[in-house]
Design a protein around this nucleic acid. Structure first.
Lengths: 120, 120
DNA sequence: GCAATTACATACCTGGGAGTAAGTATGTCT
DNA sequence: AGACATACTTACTCCCAGGTATGTAATTGC
């Protein structure tokens, strides 16, 4: 934990990287992000299909979260340019590299939910 | 993973289970929960050590999150009953069953943070 | 002409997650 | 007697994620 030769990673760099990681983690920790990624891990989905598959999400939050996931390159949006509107969302390559982790997290949660929260 | 003899699982049960899973997922998605679990995955830690290891967390949020994780049986608290106070936190068996997933999620985030959020 | 469909956009509001700052208990050390 | 250390509480505040409700564009079918 010392030594800083010519070209070095400064403490500020570490802080920034850490900050980025935190920001990204915060995005994934948003209420619906993990659920959306898990839903898309099974294949492309139309907006309405996603809404049905994930129960209880409002259209606003669905679209908002999808947009954010799109910005960080986890989700892709394809507009068929039809009427009535037809849009399909899918995971990018990067999204696919993440989804197995999300899915296993989700499975863990489902396996343990009852033991952990017996009441209600 | 089936068989539902006389006693059956109703739609309401599924909804409740789903609700529980969502609640549990929400707990994990709290800002500091994943970071705490990751920190504890390396071994037991005193309160102050945790605070140092996880940068930027306030004492209040640290304790509050630890309490919640304790309630769901992911974290254990051991009080040495010394003065000045000495308390150690560690993962429970259940916590250890979860931590590998958290750690891999964290590693993924750290690996991709720069590519995803180049600015800032 | 008008209802229906679909994927949004927008306005408004509230709860609670989260930060800051200060206080508390209880001993040891000088 | 007073400073210091440690692990918390508690009070106060702010902000925004997230919910609800409604509006919109562009077609097809009746």
């Amino acid at each position: 934990m010392s030594e800083f030769p010519s070209t070095t990673i400064t403490a500020a760099d570490v802080m920034k990287a850490d900050c980025r990681a935190r920001t990204l983690l915060a995005l994934l920790a948003e209420k619906w992000a993990l659920l959306i990624i898990e839903a898309l891990s099974k294949g492309p989905r139309r907006t309405s299909a996603l809404k049905r598959q994930i129960g209880g999400i409002s259209e606003k939050m669905l679209v908002q979260t999808l947009r954010r996931l799109e910005k960080v390159g986890l989700v892709e949006r394809y507009d068929f340019r039809e009427v009535p509107p037809r849009v399909e969302y899918s995971l990018t390559e990067r999204g696919h590299s993440l989804s197995p982790i999300i899915v296993s997290l989700d499975r863990w949660v489902e396996r343990h939910a009852f033991d952990i929260l017996p009441e209600a």
